[in-house]
Design a protein around this nucleic acid. Structure first.
Lengths: 252, 252
DNA sequence: CTCCGTTTTGTGAATTTTTCACATCTTTTC
DNA sequence: GAAAAGATGTGAAAAATTCACAAAACGGAG
């Protein structure tokens, strides 16, 4: 595959849904016809489908979350993308990692290198995404009841399932953070799961975009002392980042 | 939503991918313009996306399997649809059931009534499909390693997971059957899982389209004596159906 | 039942998008 | 370095889509 085609693919993956004119503007070094042919090429390889006047990402499970969360998902898309890219750089080969549920985690999944990784996750849509798009990683899905809102599983026996899994690095998402309350989420089951993961992982990396700082959700699952690294975006206020560093947490 | 729009939606859901001319032929009582407007209407509600000259089902996890198996999936679409409809009629309210992986099972999932059901499955795409499209069923995903080919999980501890689950009716798919070899599939892990399910379920219903009769795959997981009912399509030869009945199996 | 306003549907022209054939330019191979 | 193969650009032809408006169907209110 050519470099231009890769670039077009990445662009569409990021945007989700593009028009041809948008693409000709973005890739103005080439003619419309060439872009058309590239789209045809990419469609044949099932990376995308061509729509009325443009193209759309080939919807695998990605669309599940987009469809669910609708515009909310896309809103902080660029922030989350930034976080995902930074987090992906922390992934080493042959690592055993945990990947949380949520849109930021989905973006991280797409940024992961196609290498030998053992990826445990409670989000079946993320697991499917990885397995369909990459050849090398092994995906382990945690079993349990599938939650409608979060598309993630939670089982009474999560602890049993984790017992035989040695997780090196856990990428965990939070929905809220304040100094007083720590990291919090909206669901009780998620809270229990995240706690179990954090307790068992060697290294915990928190993914949180700046829009979630200074908000409180019902259930706290971790304090600053529980985590090693926090990955956030460039819009996070310097004051909070300084407070994180003061607590001995790496900030990226 | 109008009756015509419902019908168009159903038609596209069944076919997966249609052209406008196909639709105008199918719904020839209305003009092309009306169909166009219906497609626009349905697109706004996220039921489908419009493509170059037609429309395509809004891809939730359903598309995952279609995308994977490609034409194979669509080939016996009508037969599988027939089987799924017949099998759905066997589902009672408040039942605890197991749903196998595979395209026939996916179709059954779409035909299920939106009632209080406990649905256990090893196919995360089917679980997501149910949870997104229906409000009432509870979905339990079995955990384990996610297989690339089948989009289903298999874990070393399936037996443990099943221990606390009481499955009333299991809908199981087979890839091959002959009198001599019984029901067989292509993967060893699937074979183990199916055996465990069949051993623990009170009632076992086998789903198999006629194209799979008289073919043998590497791993046998059940004999006629293990199952209660076979649901197949109208193209199944009467002689085989008679043999099933003679063995005490209900044939639908 | 009929009038009037609203909604839905059909029609054809205008517009836009897509396709196709072919010319030109680039890269590869011998 | 020449021939072949491949990629890209161009513009006309074909097709699909949109748009504005007319016709038809529908739904009360009198």
């Amino acid at each position: 595959m050519k470099e231009r085609q890769e670039a077009i693919k990445r662009y569409i993956e990021r945007k989700g849904d593009v028009t041809l004119s948008e693409l000709t503007k973005e890739f103005s070094d080439w003619s419309e016809m060439t872009i058309r042919r590239d789209l045809e090429f990419l469609e044949q390889r099932r990376f995308l489908i061509r729509t009325k006047r443009g193209a759309r990402i080939m919807p695998t499970s990605y669309e599940v979350s987009v469809g669910m969360y609708g515009e909310r998902e896309k809103r902080n898309c660029d922030l989350k993308q930034e976080i995902a890219a930074k987090a992906a750089a922390l992934v080493e080969t042959d690592i055993s990692m945990y990947l949380d549920a949520g849109s930021t985690a989905m973006m991280l999944a797409r940024e992961l290198p196609d290498r030998n990784l053992i990826i445990t996750t409670s989000a079946p849509n993320i697991g499917i995404e990885i397995v369909l798009k990459k050849k090398n990683p092994t995906v382990i899905l945690l079993g349990g009841t599938l939650q409608r809102k979060t598309i993630s599983t939670c089982g009474l026996n999560v602890l049993d399932q984790l017992k035989t899994l040695n997780i090196d690095t856990a990428f965990v998402c939070a929905s809220g953070y304040t100094d007083a309350t720590g990291f919090s989420v909206g669901g009780q089951h998620e809270c229990v799961l995240k706690r179990a993961i954090i307790a068992s992982a060697r290294r915990v990396i928190m993914l949180m975009d700046s829009s979630k700082l200074n908000s409180i959700l019902p259930f706290t699952f971790a304090q600053l002392s529980d985590i090693d690294t926090i990955v956030t975006d460039s819009k996070a206020p310097e004051s909070i980042k300084a407070a994180f560093r003061a607590a001995g947490v790496h900030v990226l």
